[in-house]
Design a protein around this nucleic acid. Structure first.
Length: 140
DNA sequence: GCCAACGTTGGC
DNA sequence: GCCAACGTTGGC
């Protein structure tokens, strides 16, 4: 079982879109490193942190899981896509700022400056911490 | 909208 | 194979 973080701009596709659609094909990745993660390491059932970039605030907005392993994109077989399935929408965005200041997440790639990789591996421990943050409701 | 950081391209 | 120029990403 592997754990991932997948980035997308909410203007392109949001957790609400995924909730509505149930599953979606993750197309359009045009980065070799990200493609190789999908092609070589993503398995059905892997857990996904759904991350909104260029958002207000940017951060993890919910959870998904890999429902179908990588296959070539029909129109552009150099690249490939997986399917992901909606799992949960967080009550509140776990913002990048929160990720940065949470103990145990210091090594997450997304918190590091200049990391543009749109699909990133995360550890189980990092995944669990983010889920805990996302499910926690603020008392305010 | 700005701009730093990064990946890719292409001339040599 | 180097590296400058260019395009893109993404936080702010």
């Amino acid at each position: 079982m592997n754990y991932w973080l997948m980035k997308v701009e909410p203007s392109a596709y949001s957790i609400d879109d995924l909730k509505r659609d149930g599953t979606t094909s993750w197309e359009g990745v045009r980065n070799y490193q990200a493609r190789n993660f999908m092609r070589d390491e993503m398995k059905a059932g892997d857990k996904v942190l759904f991350y909104a970039s260029n958002a207000d605030p940017s951060g993890v907005t919910g959870l998904a899981e890999v429902s179908r392993e990588a296959r070539p994109e029909p129109k552009d077989p150099t690249w490939c896509m997986v399917d992901i399935r909606y799992v949960d929408k967080f009550a509140e965005v776990v913002s990048l700022e929160t990720l940065k200041k949470t103990k145990g997440l210091e090594n997450m790639l997304v918190t590091k400056k200049g990391t543009r990789l749109s699909i990133q591996p995360v550890t189980k421990s990092e995944y669990d911490i983010v889920v805990k943050l996302g499910k926690r409701r603020t008392s305010a």
